[in-house]
Write a protein that binds this DNA or RNA. Structure first.
Length: 367
DNA sequence: TCTGGGGTCCTTTGACCC
DNA sequence: TCTGGGGTCAAAGGACCC
């Protein structure tokens, strides 16, 4: 490398087995044992598994019933999101005391803009030590020239990893890994790529971009090609706008009784509106989601004249949409959503129309 | 093996307007 | 009058992420 401008440095900080670690903090007798945080119903899934439980094949998003079969001796704990949110807030406070620009992604991870830091690596080491001593949590860190490299690097040596890579090093190191290693390439896209003969990031990186564009559309095609080369120019942005809020519920057993569906829908609309009200949010688009017993998922939406968080309006519209769809089979999930959110006007003030002047950004895949 | 909940964003399609 | 193109908006579906 010669005289190119110094690459911006980004860190990705990711708490290891976050929920489980918090639980172990208050139940130290469980340390070293397989521990699983999951719901309790027949259709619950695993939220987090300790590394001991992972050795038995237990992993996130797996049905809890299967986790129990794989590891019957595991201790199953119900999630306590109130505490997790609290610990997360304390962790992010420590992060912000170290770095000015922080992009929080979920409760347990964040991107940090290291620009301007005197000694980024030393600063990150100190931050890790602080998080460990104050909260008892171990984190993994990835550092790279962009968010994509940082993210994949932080995942590479979990738990307690500390991996610094240039873009070129990332390309070399992960060339033999499947494309799904990269965020934004999920199972569906990975399967299509595999069918085209691109089973590794190295192969994908040398695929003709025109071919990818033809198969996946110009935006995603180009993005796949760039990601395979670990190119990414999204910046670390502290402010994200909430665009929708929802409630949904999966039933322990499917329901077929319309009256029961209406009752659940009403209940969720009330809870949703209470939260919208609390956050001074209103939205114009009211949508429902219905998942049938055969897993087909249908959404229906209607945009109303004025933004609202009125439970009567939201519930009535949701019930109307449900009646119009009239689920033809038993239902396993119902949901309600309010989108097109805007902040409520100050009392008595008329609401200005949203400018809607969003930047024409590049394809906004995660990372 | 039988798949949560809460989100974001993209693509496609169709309506409507100029 | 007919046709086409472009822009915008809304709806629906789907992929993906934590």
């Amino acid at each position: 490398m010669t005289s190119s401008a110094p690459a911006p440095q980004v860190a990705h900080l990711d708490a290891d087995a976050f929920y489980v670690s918090i639980e172990l903090g208050r139940r130290p007798e469980l340390r070293g044992k397989p521990v699983v945080v999951s719901g309790s119903g027949p259709r619950a899934v695993v939220t987090t598994a300790s590394y001991e439980a992972r050795r038995y094949g237990v992993g996130s998003a797996m049905p809890a019933s299967r986790a129990r079969r794989l590891c019957p001796q595991a201790v199953f704990l119900a999630p306590d999101f109130t505490t997790y949110r609290d610990v997360s807030a304390r962790m992010m406070k420590l992060v912000r005391a170290t770095v000015e620009r922080v992009e929080v992604v979920g409760l347990d991870e964040a991107y940090l803009d290291l620009e301007g830091l005197f000694s980024p690596r030393a600063a990150m080491r100190r931050l890790l030590a602080e998080i460990k001593s104050e909260l008892g949590l171990t984190c993994s860190v990835g550092i790279g020239p962009n968010k994509l490299v940082a993210k994949v690097a932080s995942d590479a040596e979990k738990p307690a990893g500390f991996v610094v890579l240039s873009r070129e090093q990332a390309c070399t190191r992960f060339a033999g890994h499947p494309p799904s290693l990269v965020p934004g390439i999920g199972p569906k896209t990975a399967a299509r790529l595999a069918q085209m003969g691109y089973a590794t990031l190295g192969q994908l990186a040398s695929a003709p971009e025109a071919l990818l564009a033809e198969r996946f559309g110009p935006n995603l095609g180009r993005e796949l090609s760039r990601r395979a080369r670990f190119e990414h120019d999204g910046s670390v942005s502290s402010a994200r706008k909430v665009v929708s809020e929802s409630r949904e519920r999966t039933f322990d057993t499917d329901i077929a009784d319309p009256a029961e569906m209406r009752s659940v829908m009403r209940e969720m609309a009330l809870s949703l509106c209470a939260s919208l009200e609390r956050h001074r949010r209103r939205g114009r688009t009211i949508a429902i989601k219905v998942r049938l017993d055969d897993w087909t998922t249908v959404t229906r939406a209607r945009t109303v004249a004025a933004a609202t968080c009125d439970p009567d309006v939201v519930a009535a519209e949701a019930l109307r949409l449900l009646a119009e769809y009239a689920p033809p089979r038993p239902v396993r999930l119902l949901g309600v959503r309010v989108a097109g959110l805007q902040c409520a006007p100050a009392d008595g003030e008329p609401q200005l129309a949203a400018p809607g002047a969003l930047e024409a950004d590049q394809l906004a895949l995660p990372v």
